[in-house]
Amino acid sequence: MKKQKLVVSALLVLIAAYIAGSFAYKYFYLKNLNFIASENASVFIRPHSPIVGNENAKTYIIEFFDPACETCKQFYPFVKKIMQKHPEQIKLILRYAPFHTDSYYIVQMLEAAKFQNLYFETLEVIFKYQDQWASHQAPNIAKLWSFLPEAGIDVEKLKSDMKRPEIDVIIKQDIEDGKLLNVSQTPEFFVNGKPLKRFGYKELEELVNSEL
């Protein structure tokens, strides 16, 4: 009986420590984010970051994304839908979190597309054919070149623009900011600097609604 009590109490203590630890971690994590948001808002929005929607909107969604990430692709139309429900009230700021092997390269392409004013067109083509160039069995980013003209891209110009050093600076800055904000999965959303408590479509919509 004594032994049973010992084991049961040890188990309870460990589980209690786990739960208390989770709450403590989340509490300090949120506190730290609020601190970053108030002290250094530029971590969330950099001048180079592409913005969708009304630039003067008060509510802003930050999305850290990876062009090779399937969930990011699925969220893209969803986020657009949320914005359409509240026209002119929300802006979306895109940040990069290139976690996949070749993602850095794809992000370079995207940034280079800015020089042709075809950023969002290119992004949509990249997402549209994601299952082909980023397939799990045989990822082959070379395939992407043949799809890019669909966005109206001049491929030769894009290739030379990709080498511009300022693009590297932008991507490295985003990776740096992502680390500071603890971005470990994509897509990662922040609405007015607040992170999602739980990941999901519904949760994101609720957070946006509460910030409007």
Binding site: Y18, G21, S22, Y25, K26, N182, S184, Q185
Partner: peptide
């Protein structure tokens, strides 16, 4: 704890 709470993959 590392993977589920702190989200380290």
């Amino acid at each position: 704890f590392f993977s589920e709470v702190m989200h380290f993959p």
